[in-house]
Design a protein around this nucleic acid. Structure first.
Lengths: 335, 335
DNA sequence: TTGTAAGCGTTATCAC
DNA sequence: GTGATAACGCTTACAA
């Protein structure tokens, strides 16, 4: 092992040059002679010189690191979103720090501090389920780090956000249900604190209205995504005097649990209830009797888009502030 | 926005102290008076002071960052392993840089360079499918960064490694198959360049031997994990004159594709072939007719263990080198 | 075309 | 108990 890593100074003294010359040579600065560049690069290669990013970051007062804070990487949607985000970030010369809140406000706060202390240049965040109060995020923003929400944005915050066009998706889902003869259409939603829940709900409601189906609030349940909660929501619906024949779920994970619940507890009705979720989880292809459909979102593109929006903010900190709201379309995929 | 972030110097000049005093005060250095500490901490709080890690890292010549390089976070096993690793790392005050090779050697090389240039303090790695030559890893090791393999270790490298005890798992699987009357037991393996493939194979072979079943090499196929490859392996097996009645798969993803292939192309036989995989993918609970069983591994613990082994290496760089091989048990879970 | 010197924020060492 | 100083590796005016 070369016990000491080569530095610019090492190269410089070896070649009787100054560190600044070496620095410029390695970065192809025009003011350095071709021959010098050659010599420098050759030796750098030999010494296995790798520039010390920690020093560069420190010097430049820029971490070249972007943060992304998500509920969990075990959620297929978010792991794909992270892929898109990373791809973009790496392409722009940035590293990525990933944080998982696991739906805990406390963890979210800790991660925000870690990221702040790492002087990340910007953050993309989908808030946790417990995040009803955003004072920790406000403090973060106040420290001067640009931020872009994605998917889950607090309903009362005016901020940049990249998400799926779940409203139109819900409209489409309802239309498809109706075209198949359904009139009793239920909806299992999530935290009313997120814009994405409100938008789904509005799409559901407006979809019903478009088809002259009266809105019935007993057909709307809320889940916290645990299996127990998904089951409970399903039970509530199926035990109604007039149970639904179609259910729109906040996301496929909810829909799958709904399916399980129907199979286990309402076996006689499982074939008479059709389901649509959001996300098109890859699992579904392995089901012998898949649900009706799912709204295909674009997590990869959403991650990328959030990254590029964030970079805009980083590169134009003085630009007039006007919250961008980017919605990427969902597409109904029938199984 | 406070446009400039507070530094030690800011606090110092405000209180007419020196930066070094402030530094010590904030870290509760015994040589600083209680009253001074009070004043310093109070002002730090007020100014919303967050220590600049980039400066600390630079100063300490230590990045407090661990790297983990995996094939893909979309693979359930690895995303859980990353969770375990992260949990451990954060607990020890380290950040985590995650890299995904997506099974590409080229990407793996790039990521190694990025990590090196970030001066990570250590790396945990599962090599890509394309990694047959390890010169890039050797170079990395030579640069002085400790490394621990997990799951996928090159077969000809003597290094620390944390993985599942897949050998014993295979033995168990075969025993279970035999107990159910199977004699024609096939095996779909992966890259012969990994120890984990060799170990599975040895378990498969020894398992057969234990039950006096002759080894038949036509019953062993290799897959590269693409759906096409999984299907192809399944076809090869099922088209034999005497096709298997039981198949052990390298991992559940392979098993699921095998199941799909049987359903689509060998529908008449799908009920007469029993399957066992590795991993216990959560998907499986949603299948109406699940496969026979799966070997439950411990990705979370493996990630944690790899992290703690890595930290040992980091903290005791002078310790005599003796490759550690840690194997965590698999457990057969019947569905 | 090359060199000099200052400085980024923090901590360790040593002096007071 | 507190302060001055140097150092980490690199970049960037500016000087030569």
């Amino acid at each position: 092992m070369d016990h000491k890593r080569a530095t610019l100074k090492d190269i410089a003294s070896e070649l009787n040059l100054s560190p600044s010359t070496v620095s410029k040579a390695l970065r192809d600065h025009p003011s350095i002679g071709v021959i010098t560049k050659e010599r420098v690069k050759k030796l750098a290669e030999q010494l296995n010189f790798v520039p010390n990013q920690t020093a560069i970051r420190f010097k430049q007062q820029k971490s070249y690191t972007l943060g992304i804070l998500i509920p969990s990487m075990l959620d297929h949607f978010y792991s794909v979103a992270v892929e898109g985000f990373e791809k973009f970030a790496y392409g722009e010369g940035y590293n990525v720090l990933i944080g998982q809140s696991h739906e805990k406000l406390q963890r979210e706060k800790e991660l925000l501090l870690i990221m702040q202390s790492n002087r990340i240049d910007g953050l993309v965040i989908a808030i946790s389920r417990e995040t009803m109060d955003t004072s920790h995020i406000d403090a973060f923003v106040k420290s001067g780090i640009p931020i872009v929400y994605f998917m889950r944005k607090p309903i009362n915050e005016e901020f940049h956000c990249v998400c799926s066009d779940v409203y139109t998706g819900a409209i489409e889902a309802i239309a498809y249900f109706v075209s198949r003869g359904h009139q009793r259409i239920a909806f299992i939603n999530a935290s009313s604190y997120w814009t994405t829940s409100r938008d789904r709900f509005l799409g559901y409601r407006d979809g019903l209205i478009q088809h002259h189906i009266p809105f019935d609030k007993t057909l709307v349940q809320e889940s916290d995504f645990t299996q127990e909660s998904n089951f409970q929501a399903t039970r509530q619906l199926m035990q109604l005097d007039s149970p639904p024949t179609a259910i729109l779920a906040f996301k496929d994970q909810v829909m799958l649990d709904t399916l399980s619940c129907l199979r286990r507890e309402f076996a006689s009705k499982v074939d008479s209830v059709e389901l649509i979720g959001y996300g098109v989880m890859p699992v579904i292809q392995y089901l012998e009797r898949p649900p009706l459909a799912s709204l295909k979102e674009q997590p990869y593109n959403i991650g990328q888009k959030a990254g590029s929006l964030l970079l805009d903010l980083i590169n134009h900190p003085q630009a007039p502030y006007e919250p961008q709201l980017v919605k990427l379309p969902c597409k109904l995929q029938v199984f």
